[in-house]
Structure formats: structure tokens, C-alpha cells
Design a protein around this nucleic acid. Sequence first.
DNA 1: CCGAAATGTCTATTAATGTAGACAACCATA
DNA 2: TATGGTTGTCTACATTAATAGACATTTCGG
Lengths: 245, 245
Amino acid sequence: MVLKKNVERQIGVALWRQIADRIRLSISNGDYDQTGMVPPEIKLAGQFGVNRHTVRSALAALAEEGLVEAIQGRGTMVRRKERLSFPISRRTRLSQGLSNQVRDIRSRLLAHEELPATAESATALGLNLGEKLIRMDTTSSADGRPVSYSTSYFPAARFPDMARHFEELGSITKSFAAQGLADYVRVSTEIVARHADANELATLKLSAGAIVLETIAVNADPDGVPVQYSRSRFAADRVTLKMET
Amino acid sequence: MVLKKNVERQIGVALWRQIADRIRLSISNGDYDQTGMVPPEIKLAGQFGVNRHTVRSALAALAEEGLVEAIQGRGTMVRRKERLSFPISRRTRLSQGLSNQVRDIRSRLLAHEELPATAESATALGLNLGEKLIRMDTTSSADGRPVSYSTSYFPAARFPDMARHFEELGSITKSFAAQGLADYVRVSTEIVARHADANELATLKLSAGAIVLETIAVNADPDGVPVQYSRSRFAADRVTLKMET
DNA sequence: CCGAAATGTCTATTAATGTAGACAACCATA
DNA sequence: TATGGTTGTCTACATTAATAGACATTTCGG
């Protein structure tokens, strides 16, 4: 029996995109590892119950991402199947967690400003409404591929030079250390998923229409005093969040 | 300055769906808490740079979900803004974690079968390839709204009557207890996000085209022997995964 | 070297999505 | 009760997504 892989119509998500999502998942599941090839277009069209051209659109999108490569006369090869596994634990550190999966991790400061705490950020950081915060927008790339896009808030009174240090050191951990905080721990992490907005698409260099995983996290010093509140967006098709408990 | 909330065209995700996603996020962010109303259609159309009819499609989808309600002459009210926060920790228990957020949690067995372990499930459970497993498909509802759809694998040798117990007790924890396992812990959790397939849409009663958060988890007994490998799908617009570390 | 099987390209048509504008219906309030 | 602001409905049209079919091109194995 050939199982029917249903896709839905008239739902505001184009068929080719649904199919691209499913093939991408199959690739990362290792479904095609035996041959290293994606099934032929006609076969896929049959499985999904769509026209061959629709499958071709999906494959074109995956080729654009660099995930597959079509070769006329032979078929469509899988070029890349890894997702980065991003560990989340009590001692979550971006660079440490990815260091054994990629050669090179680079973080960049996109923007920063000083601003008064809003209700949301004040609550998270245990501050009073209106106290000064430093906001930093940063992005991280692994081997040249953007993986995360974060907006972080720090209490300005305690870490006045966060942005300057980060710009120099390229690391939150090191910037904390440079200001006298040797260690910190992850207190809580919330995770949501949604479609990326245009800003996220551009920053993460996503093939548009993609999904982002967003983590909303609070870090605290060893005494439990919050030092960072951040919202990080990850390209959902490039990472897995992995929690070790 | 009115900020321009960009949406993208020709990306395989209809504009109305992108806009619905964004409004849903704004609702859960509390952006409309002051008035309890979504901005007027014409204003939204301006912000997103689309036609009013496109915004109406987005609002219709949100109304269908029961998130908002339009009242002719007055505007569009926010009806519901809560997301369920689903805690993930070393002692993750579905019912316990949600018990203070909803009145009623109900789990149901959709299907079960005995089958030999595949490479994937054998590795996760520390078994040999081909050893007997029990697979159970279950779904959970909170106050009548489906929140999760899980496929779990258990070693058949150790828990031969998993399905029968679950059917009766409606709880994995209780089913384990009935078979002599009083306690278990979460060993690892991986999280990915993607578009829901037709099966997930139906089971979770999602407004189609929605996004699911999938957790791939392993539970083990107190001695560290794996007892359960499961893949759970959550409606991304109805839950937040929250990790306490 | 032929033929099967695969991808590449083209044309034509239909279905779904989005735009544009007009106006009706309804609500709050001055 | 008149008015401005809002949602509801309708028609017409433009653009994008998907289907259908034909045929070219390339690869590989017998």
C-alpha cells in the first residue's frame, strides 16, 4: 500500500510550500538516506496527489535553500540533511553548545539603545517600570549561515557597557565577564512557533514564508537576580532545540 | 511614526494567513489589552500595506478560531488571549502541568499496535532492532480544545498491557503505575516546528495551514532505563512550551 | 546504441488569492 | 437625530498558484 501524504487546499499555504516542508522533514528524518536521492517528481506528485509541476515548485524552493540538487536524467540528490541541534539547559551558552557541530560561530551586533523598562521587560527582569534598560539586537551565524536573531534586555545600571563589550567580544558570556559577572544560569525558557515576519526573513536569510522558533528566556546571576531577558528567533528548518534535563 | 508591518508576497503563504499570524501574536502579546479591541480593518490594511478585504480574510480566520469577534458598527473584539503554557522539566507530566490552567484535561487513545522496533525507535529506547514495541496514538484536550497529538512507543516486553491500561485510566503516568513503574523522568526533549499535515490538522482541529510544535522525547525509569519514546505535536498557536531548569 | 527513466521547458487553462470601489447596515455619541 | 466611524456585502478585475499535456534533454544500463 502506498500511503497518501495529504496536503490541504485553500488554507492560505500554497501546496508547493506544504510539500517542501514535508520533503524537508523527510530529509532530516533520514528517509532518503539509503539512496541519497529524493523520489522522482512523478512519484512524489502521486504520493501528494498533485501535479508534477507543483512538486517541481517545492523542489525548486529546496534547491534554492541548498538542501537538494536536481540533475537532469538522474534525479534529485540530497545535498544537506543536518539540522543544528541547539541545546537548552540550565547553563545555556550559544557558542559552547554549537561548538562541536560547526567550525565557526560568529555573533554580530545589529543595533542597541537605552530605553525605559516596559511592563513586560520590567516584570521579567524584576525591575520597576521605567528603569533604564539596554536593548541589543544581535545575530549569530554558524559557518556563515544565520541561525539566530535575538533581542536582549539588560539592566543598564548594572551593565552599562554591554553593547561596547559585545561589539568587541562577540559574546554575551564574555561581555558579562568583562563587567564582573563570571557566571549566570538560565532561569526559564518559553518556546513558541510562528511564521517569520519580513524583518526576520531578511535577518535570518530565510527562504520567505518560513517558520521561526522563538525562545523567550531569562538568565540570572548565581544569586538568582535576573541579568538578561531575551527573545531569540531561530530558523525552524535549520535548528532543533534540544533540552537536556 | 506608524511602523510598517511588512508581509511578503509570492512566498507560498497567503497574505491573509501571514496577517492572521501576526494579529494572533499581537493578541497574545497583550498589544490590544487597553481597549480589548483589534484595530479597525482599514487601519490594519494600512499598517500591513494590503487591501481591506485581505485583512477581513485574516480576521475571519481568527473569528473561526474563536479568538476574536466582529461586531458591526463597533469593531472587532478580542475574545480569548491565553495560550496554554505547557511545562517541560525533568518530571514532565501532562495533566499536572496544565491542571492550574484549565478545569478539565482528557486524554484519548486513537489507535495502538504491536510492531518491531525500527532503527530510530530502537536507538531511542536502547533496544535491539526488531524487538517488540507497543505504539500508541493519543490525543489530549483541555476544556474540550485539543492541544496535543502524540505517538508513543513502549517496550512491549516490559509493558505488555499499556494500551489496555491507558484506555481505562486515560493517563500514561497511571498506566505505568498500574504496571509497576511508580516514577519516571524526562531524559531528553527535542523541539522542531513545521506546518501541520492533514492528519494533524484533523486531529488537533486546527484551522488549516497552521503550525505545529513537535517534541521528540525520551522518558526513563529512575535507573535510567528508557521506558517511552514519543513524538507529540502541539498546536503552535494554542500553546507555549515552558522549560523550567 | 537503444530505450527506459528521469529532469527541463513550453503552452494553455482553471482555480485561488488579492485589489478596487461602492454602498448598506449598524453603533456610539455629540 | 444627524454624523462619523465601523463592519457587512456585492461586483469587477488582476495576479498568482495549480493543473494538464506535450515534448526536449540527459543519464544509465542492457
